[in-house]
Simulated scan of single mutants.
Amino acid sequence: MKLGYNEATCKENSTVEKDLELCEKYGYDYIELRLDMLKDYLKTHTVDDLKAFFAKSHLKPFAFNSIENINFCNELEWKELVELFTFGCEIAQQIGNPYMIVVPTVTPEICTKNEKEVFDDSVKVLNQLADIAEPYGVKLSFEPIGDKKWCCNSVRQALEIVQAVNRDSVGLTVDCINVYLHDKCADVEYIKKIPKEKLFVFHINDCEDLPLGILDHCHRLMPGLGAIPVQAVSDAVQAVGYDGPACLELFRPEYWQMDAEDVIKMGADTTRPFL
């Protein structure tokens, strides 16, 4: 696998410009740009600036993060979501960014929608978004979030949805902590059931050893420093035939208080053993 970086890792202590510079410096192969950070970047830069950077750099764009809460939208929510999604597709087409990560809806408490409701709505919404994205040459990478507050929270459930959509442009994101949040990786072998052509994105991370229900995304750690069997997840992903980037994605406030260069260097050092 290749070395990838997701901008969530330093989203409070860095910028697109700084992330591009540092990821190039420390040998990352790919970067996942955040749409909110990209909008800030475009206040003082142009898309041509971004294209020029990638044209002369080893680092390449991989996936925009992220279109969230895609399920059960009301009319206004859907309108705003489509506007952001279309903005992302337009930029992605211009810079050669192949994937857009899309995320199921989260509720304040445990989601009470049943699986059929989630399945039916997800299939409908992913088809609607794919209709928008395909003319831009952009693919959707659907990411189940392991916590029960999210309406789609397992690899198994997400794969069933993606297979029902049955479009070349719709696949899956596998994220270490989301596999762990679902059942402490008891079902890690299920990853091997994903067809190679449906596994679009792999997020690598670790987390503190906390009980499910208390563990949250703020407890993420660098790979190999926590409770997740990162090697087992990485092995399962590679067993499918995935050879894209392992993208470091962390939301840890402690890392946001550090110098971005220290975090990005540490990320490269801790992730490389799992590639």
Score class of each variant (00 low, 15 high):
Met1Thr: 15
Met1Arg: 09
Lys2Glu: 10
Gly4Trp: 08
Gly4Glu: 11
Glu7Ala: 13
Asn13Pro: 05
Thr15Ile: 08
Glu17Val: 14
Glu21Phe: 13
Leu33His: 06
Arg34Pro: 12
Tyr41Asn: 05
Leu42Trp: 13
Thr44Val: 08
Leu50Lys: 03
Ala55Phe: 14
Lys56Pro: 00
Leu59Ser: 04
Lys60Ile: 01
Phe62Pro: 07
Ala63Ile: 04
Asn65Val: 05
Glu68Trp: 11
Asn74Met: 00
Glu75Cys: 00
Glu77Ser: 07
Trp78Val: 07
Val82Ala: 04
Phe85Gln: 13
Pro98Glu: 14
Tyr99Arg: 02
Met100Ala: 00
Ile101Asp: 03
Ile110Asn: 08
Cys111Lys: 11
Cys111Gln: 04
Lys113Ala: 06
Glu115Ile: 14
Lys116His: 15
Lys116Trp: 14
Val118Glu: 12
Ser122Val: 10
Ala130Pro: 06
Asp131Tyr: 11
Pro135Arg: 02
Gly137Trp: 12
Gly137Phe: 09
Gly137Asn: 03
Lys139Leu: 04
Leu140Met: 11
Ile145Asp: 10
Lys148Val: 07
Lys149Ala: 12
Asn153Cys: 14
Val155Pro: 05
Arg156Ala: 15
Ile161Lys: 04
Val165Glu: 00
Asn166His: 14
Arg167Asn: 02
Leu172Asn: 08
Asp175Ala: 09
Ile177Glu: 11
Asn178Phe: 03
Cys185His: 00
Val188Trp: 00
Glu189Met: 06
Tyr190Asn: 09
Ile194Tyr: 00
Pro195Gln: 04
Lys198Thr: 07
Cys207Phe: 06
Glu208Ser: 02
Leu210Glu: 01
Asp216Tyr: 03
His217Trp: 06
Gly226Trp: 05
Val230Met: 13
Val233Met: 06
Ser234Lys: 03
Val237Tyr: 06
Ala239Thr: 12
Gly244Lys: 00
Leu248Asp: 05
Tyr255Gly: 01
Asp262Gly: 12
Asp262Lys: 15
Val263Thr: 13
Asp269Gly: 10
Pro273Glu: 01
